[in-house]
Amino acid sequence: MCGRYAATADPGDLIEEFEIDADFTDEPTRSLLKSPQDPPPATPDHNMAPTKQAPVILTRAPKGEPAAPPSRLGPGGPRTSGHRLRQLRLLTWGLVPSWARETKVGLRMTNARAETVLEKSSFARAAAVRRCLVPAAGWYEWQVSPVAEDSKGKPRKQPFFIHRGDGDLLAFAGLYEFWRDRAVADDDPAAWLVSFTIITTAADPGMDRIHDRQPLVLERGDHERWLDPDLTDPAGIADLLDFRQSGRFAAHPISTAVNATRNNGPGLLEPLPRGELVGVVDPETGEVINGD
């Protein structure tokens, strides 16, 4: 699964990197957080966690809605034919289906399995027409040690940072959805919660020594097709969901500081010295490292 990742780029970098047509990250949006997000949305966040608002890339047609701000992202309304904008938006991590009675369900829907996403009612409609890209520097995963225990006698868990070996930004395949709060007026920005989930797939050889799942990372040549809302053919979508390309990722163990979501900053990405490793399996060689 992917339960934490590093979103280190600012909107300006993402606009250039992903050829964004319209940046809406400064628009007011509904948040599920009781306290202000820290770091603030649309700024580098090295410990992105569920319920936070994160930059997400999607493609939608501009809408001609005279009664509402034309830039407002919503599920209905007239569309201008043939013209679609690649947009950068702030969405809440943890997908809340439109039929959900309350928003807490999103905490159980931070990930969607590529193998079943076209079949499950919570994700099938979004997989057909509401696909997005989630930009990231990399993601965190926790390796369960086969030999070492923690102070409670349980298998020791070592956090890793996993990223592209060439240093390029990642684009996770994601889905987004709209949820309407009927208790809020139509013209209130809080009337709509727009949320997303990250699709996961089986881990690459080597990376599976850390965890058996990983985010589905799409290559640049597939971005346009994944974002195209006119792609509704299940076979075409399934082809993208089945994308695999081993050898793209590198991983290194990091400090357990990442375990606490309150911790942040580029220091979380720093490799942990080999001498501090206890019962850690090297993802490349399978060697068990014990501080030597």
Rank of each mutant, 00 (worst) to 15 (best):
R113L: 01
E65R: 15
L118A: 10
T80C: 02
G77F: 04
T80Q: 07
E102M: 08
T103K: 08
G106P: 01
I57R: 03
A114Q: 03
R108M: 11
L107I: 01
A100C: 11
N111E: 08
R60W: 14
S122T: 12
L95V: 02
E102C: 07
E115P: 02
W99Y: 06
Q87P: 00
K104M: 09
H83Q: 13
A100V: 05
S121R: 13
I57N: 09
E115T: 06
M109K: 09
R101A: 13
E119N: 07
G64E: 12
G74C: 12
L107T: 13
A68M: 14
R125C: 03
L58Y: 14
L58V: 15
T103C: 07
V129K: 14
G82S: 01
A128C: 12
P78G: 01
A54N: 14
R72G: 04
P70M: 07
K104L: 08
L73G: 02
A136Q: 14
K63D: 07
A68G: 04
V117H: 06
A126E: 01
P78H: 05
F123R: 01
P66A: 03
G94Q: 01
R79E: 12
S81N: 00
W99R: 02
L73Q: 08
V129W: 04
A61C: 11
R84K: 11
G76T: 13
S121T: 10
L85S: 01
T92Q: 05
L73C: 00
T59I: 13
G94Y: 04
G106D: 08
E65F: 08
L118F: 04
L58T: 15
R130F: 00
A127Q: 02
